[in-house]
Each structure stands twice: as C-alpha cells, then as structure tokens.
Design a protein around this nucleic acid. Structure first.
Lengths: 354, 354
DNA sequence: ACAGCGGTAGCAAGCGCTTTCTATGCGGTA
DNA sequence: TACCGCATAGAAAGCGCTTGCTACCGCTGT
C-alpha cells in the first residue's frame, strides 16, 4: 500500500537502517550509497511515517502555538511571526532537521480548552509550545497550568510565553516575553492628562485576565500621580475584547453623565466600537471626546481620525518567541524579557473643549 | 519515566489490551473493570502516547487547516470557525473519539510552503485537511497539488476546500465550498454603475490567484453589460492583498488622470489603503471618490465613512468546512457548494459629482 | 447434565521507524 | 606479510500502542 522505509531500502539495495540514516543525516553514509537511497526515495515518492518516527525516536517535530482568538489580528500577527521562525517549510535552512510543523491552536480564551490543548500537545510529544496573550488570573487554573507545564517541560517540551507574564516559581518555562502593558497604559493616560483631560472613561477587558489588570493598573497609576482618583471605579467598565463591548460600554459611559471627555479602550478593536458609540451619541472625535486604543493593530492608523494607541511590537515578539521555541536564540537572562510599548499619539486624541 | 499503558494496566490489575479498550471505548468492558482502569489512569496521570497510538492504529487525530495569511482576519475567521467545529477540546461531544487536534498552518501564500505543509500533514497521517482561500493559477503548481492531494486522499485523509474553487477532474477532495466572488464583484460594480460612476479604478489582488481573477471577471462583466469597456485594462492595477498595495495603486490611479470617480479594491484591507490615498490626495470620500472593498471584515463597518463592500459569510463557511472535515456533515451534491456573497452598500460609495 | 453461547479479558503479533551493537572491508604501518 | 583502526553497512531489539484471535466463565436450552 503505502511505501515504507523497507521498500526504499529494498529498491536502493541497502538496509532500512541506512535509509533512516540518510534521511536523518546524523550518521556517515558513503556518497554513492546516499545518492542511491535518495534516488529511491524520489522514485517511490516515499513519505516518512511521522508517528512511527516519533515513537521510535521519542521526539516529534510538532510545535504548538496557543492563541486566545485566532480571528483577532493581535494573535494572528504573533502566531504568524512565530510560525515563520519555527520553520516548517521554507525556513531557509533547507536542513531536514529544521522541518518542524508549527501549528496554531485556538483556545477561544477558554481555560479548559487551553488545558486540553496542552494535553493534546503533550500526547503528541510536542517539541515546543508557545503560549501567547495574557493569562487567566484564576488561581486554580493557574495552578493547573503550572502542573501541566511542568509535566510538559519534564517530557522535554520547550515552553515559551509570548505577551504573557512569567509564571512565578516555575522553571518549566524556557523564556517569557512579557509586554509592558502597565507602562504603556500609563504613558497613554499621561498623554491624555497632558492634553488636559480630567474625566477619563476606561473600557477595560475581561476582569480575569492579566492583560486587563496590568493595563488598568497603568492607567490608575497615571491618574493617581496626577492627583486624580476616587471616581476611577465608576468610570471603568469591563467587557470582552471586542467591538461590541467598546460600543456598549461607551454608550453607557456617555449616558451616565456628560462629563467624560476621553475614553480609553482595552484595545484597538474595542476602541473602534467606542468611536462608533461616540458618533452615534452625536459627538465628534476628538473635538468632543478623545478616544484611545491599545496594540496598534494595522487598521488603527486607518480609523478616522487615526487612532491614538500604544504600539506593541507583536511581530518582533512573535518571531523571537518562535526562535526561542526552536532553540535558535538563547533565553534572556533570568528567562524573562520585558517588551516595551510605545505611545502612538494620533488624531483621535486632542485637548478637551474649554 | 513517563507513564505507559502497561503501568496503568498493572495498577488496575488488567492487561494492557483492556486499558486500551477502555480508553478507546470501542469494545465492551465490564463496568467494574472500566472504573478500575479509569481510576488508575487518573491516579497515574496517564497521557496516551500519540505517536504510538497513531502508529498502531494507522490513523491520527490531527486535522490541518491551511491558510494563506494567519494575520489576516479573513483567514483567521474561517480558521477559527473551522477549528471550533472540529473539536479538539470542548466540542461539546465529550466523547474521547471526538478529540481531534485542529491545527492551522500558515503558508504565507507560498506555493512551496503549501506543498510542504501538505507533506508534513501526510507524514503525520492527518485525519483531514482544510484548504482555505483562493488557489494559485500556476498550472504546474496546480498539478503538483492535485497529485499531492490525491495521495493524501488515498491515505484516507479527508480533504475540504473552503473559499477555494473546486479542483477539476479530481475526486480527492471531499467537498469544495466556493465563494461566489464573481457574482459579488459584479453586484458591487453594478451598484457603482447605478450610482452613475463611469470611470472606475480597480485595485486588484495578485495576478496569479483565482480569487483575484474571479473578482476581476465579475467587475468586467458588469462593466461590459453597461457598455463600458476598453479602458478597463488601464484602470486596473495589481498588487498584494495589503493596505500598502491599496494606497500605492490608488495614488497612481488618481495621479494618472482626474477622471476616476470610484475605486474598487481587491478586499477590505486594500480598500483601507485606498481610502488613505484618496484623502492624502486631498479628496473626500464619497463626495469626490467612492471606495469599495470586499469581504466585509469586522473593521469595515467602522471605517469612516463605513465601507461599502461585499459580505462573505466567512464564519459560516469555515464552520461548515470544519464539520465536513470531521464528517459531521455530509458533502453537498457533487461535492461542490457555492456560497453567496452579499452586497453591503454603505457610506463610502455615493453618486459622483456633477 | 452437557453442549453451546454471549459476554469479557488476555495473548501476542505487529505498526514503521531509530539506534546500539556488531560485522565487514580497506588502507596504512611496522 | 600480518595487524590495527577507521569508515561504512547490517542485524536486531525495541518504542508504546491496537486488535485479531483465543480462552475462560457462567448461563441457557434441551
């Protein structure tokens, strides 16, 4: 039926062992023999049996990339960059050894799915796993993750975090690349404060994610430093990281009182919803209300007016995570690197009226 | 070291065969025995060895989803929807049998990568493969794909196309879900013609993709039906499916002569670039120039003015492809289904001046 | 009371590869 | 000329699981 190593061996008139060695290139084989084998492989159109190979070698070339939402470019960009480094096809090396299969797994933000994907990858004896995006704060889930990751690490799977805070007291994770969400958020709010805003609405992400908390903390840090605090609670609304959440929350913020002069959104997508709400409320951006986002996704510069936001180097971070995952790059000191976030002041923010 | 089936068997005081049967649930096992086994699995924290299992059973639970650009929500949305149906974790069934590992592979639009990913999936003995997005028109690549897909199908891998035209004379593909790009494009251009436009610039996608050709054909069909043809060639510019291409091409179109009153873009992302170019040229949308996109990605409604475009039911199509891939749904008659595209007339198009 | 049978469990033979260990052939050296 | 060592190839033992077949047990039917 399907062609096996033995078939190739027979055709090349060598032993299966030799074919295996030619394919893996990890053992000296005479050039003439190698050529013969390669020709046979070609003629028979032989494709290695991955499971058999993985079983015998006790390793696999699978690399999993976990993302919260594959439809969100935030994750897509990171995942794409990571995948491009991990290789699979066309990583430029041309070496058979570099032929890793980078695959992305969509958890949909669900803790169970996250865990189950990890189990599935463990089952496949994955070579590495990259976890992207913020983590859930739920202690029991964190504990479960720590255990699972420890087991994976134990089995030789390399683990890399990308855009995710490091796991405390764990040496399972090879490297953690964490975004400076707090700093970015602080600078963003400072920018608004400098423009003269005092009543700033905050449309935050889901309560239980680290990303949400960090950005919120940065915002509040800035507010506090400006001597503004007390009404933050009432000016903060939580919701998922989507457009609708931005729309609904902003309508609510606007309806509550007329006092809000600026709205900071959890991310750019939410900001787009916020913009729509501001307009539907009959107000102009930025003359009546300033709006700001976070992430600087590609479409943000095309919003009208262009969205003030905080740029996260998603592609760079993803690529680095990919390289770390396949060992092309060595881990930063302490296994942790913080990635800077840069304020992008654009047209959607301006001084408040009056 | 790691826990094996045999360890579980020993602990449950049964044979390995019995453990395997409990795990696979495909053979009668007495309840008491099953419980004992399940408890042992739990206590030992046993995780099946995927490669070994796949080798012995000659099947695997991997399902590959190939996309051209994972950072593009067009693909992200389809892939996410497909993945959600394929299951992996939390497909709702709860059945162990449904635990497929849906993974997405990013070809970056490169033909070699596409082929190599297919080989990699073949090597893993994937249960199914979903190919999304338009195909390349290059005959030699198409032939290579046909051969590769035939081989995969031969090995029992189910193959589904999503948003991709069917492969002629091939029974390798289980089902093809093709978007009605031609019809959508035609209706879009008709809309512009009805508004009174006569000089319509077209920023097309890469020359070698079926999607590009089909959309272009629809456009020209409409033009021809309106008795307008001849200058289409000169009003068409090709480029990649990205913002920059839309920007550059539109600048060029605008600079060429002042006559263009509308710009149709290859997709929404390109349209965003076109919008920016129109504005940078000192013109207003839609008063001076109308702009239209394609796909109706989530951000399109938030452009200012909201983008007129053609809606493709990406999520529905992706979900259906996912279901077809795992056999939850049966293939449409003839293995081919055409998915309708709906015109979304919004603020970015209006009658030309004068 | 005995053959026969449905219901369970175990045995053992692989699945297709990797890898250790062993065998062979050859050139070079004393 | 005899011996050693290197370079290369082969033999064979698994890797951990699945599954066809056999074995056993307690019943039922006659």
């Amino acid at each position: 039926m399907t062609v096996t190593l033995a078939d190739v061996a027979a055709r090349a008139r060598v032993s299966p062992a030799t074919v295996s060695r030619v394919l893996n290139g990890n053992y000296p084989v005479a050039t003439s023999t190698r050529d013969r084998v390669l020709r046979a492989v070609d003629e028979l159109d032989y494709v290695l049996n991955g499971p058999a190979s993985s079983l015998a070698a006790a390793t696999s070339d699978l690399v999993g990339i976990l993302v919260n939402d594959i439809a969100d470019p935030f994750f897509g960009i990171m995942a794409g960059a990571a995948q491009s480094q991990i290789g699979g096809p066309g990583d430029g090396s041309g070496r058979a050894g570099g032929e890793k299969l980078a695959v992305v797994c969509n958890t949909g933000g669900s803790p169970e799915r996250e865990l189950t994907y990890l189990t599935l990858l463990q089952r496949q004896r994955a070579a590495a796993v990259v976890l992207t995006g913020g983590a859930l704060e739920d202690p029991s889930h964190q504990a479960a993750m720590a255990v699972k990751l420890a087991k994976l690490a134990d089995a030789g799977t390399r683990i890399v975090f990308c855009g995710r805070p490091p796991l405390p007291d764990s040496d399972a994770v090879t490297a953690s690349l964490a975004f400076d969400n707090r700093g970015g958020a602080r600078r963003l709010t400072e920018h608004l404060l400098e423009l003269g805003h005092r009543h700033i609405g905050y449309v935050a992400g889901p309560l239980e994610r680290t990303t949400t908390r960090h950005r919120l903390e940065g915002h509040r840090e800035a507010m506090k430093a400006a001597g503004l605090h007390g009404d933050e609670e009432s000016l903060t609304v939580h919701g998922p990281y989507d457009r609708r959440s931005g729309y609904d929350a902003t309508r609510e913020l606007l309806a509550r009182e007329g006092e809000v002069t600026a709205v900071v959104a959890a991310n750019d997508t939410v900001a787009l919803g916020a913009c729509a709400a501001v307009r539907d409320h009959g107000l102009r951006i930025p003359e009546d209300v300033s709006v700001a986002g976070f992430d600087d996704l590609p479409f943000s510069v095309d919003a009208m007016p262009a969205l003030t936001t905080v740029r996260l180097p998603l592609a760079e971070a993803g690529a680095r995570a990919g390289r770390l995952a396949v060992g092309k790059e060595k881990a930063p000191a302490g296994g942790i690197a913080t990635i800077d976030a840069e304020l992008m002041a654009r047209g959607s923010t301006a001084a408040p009226r009056g």
